[in-house]
Amino acid sequence: MFSDERMKKLREYVASLEHPEEALVDLMHEAQEAYGYLSDEAAEKVAEIANVPVIKVDELATFYSLIFRRPVGRKVIFVCDSISCWVMGMENLFEHLKDRLGIDIGGTTSDGAFTLLPICCIGACHVAPAMMVGEKLYGNLTPEKIDEILEKERA
């Protein structure tokens, strides 16, 4: 939920812009932070702040891969599945992650801790195979290292 204070700040930000629509991506990120994902309620709030129809927000939200219109876990694990990580054995690591978490791609663990998603090249090819947990980057992954990371990130 947006606090009243946050709503006020965001309204001021939008009011300072010549073209309020240009704030939509920022607002969706903000809403996602506050609501956990871009729920219908969050999308309506974004539309209200930017003074655009909610369909406009949905049009954008469904385009961007990092805006989630469905609930996700507390942390999203983004596994790079592009070419350099593929060369370095990403496919096996993906299987290992699915196995450890007991979920398939796109799934969320039953405790709500993690959602598992593929992501296109995260520019960490020098430490491939790589993944991100939330904003944190992990490279030179091995099955053992992944187990440690999961334990640490779950806490």
């Binding site: 592009s82 070419i83 350099s84 296109c120 090249c121 520019g123 960490a124 090819c125 020098h126």
Partner: peptide, 9 residues
């Protein structure tokens, strides 16, 4: 976002 590329980062 070009796969294999990490120069701008």
């Amino acid at each position: 976002m070009e796969p294999g590329t990490f120069k701008d980062r």
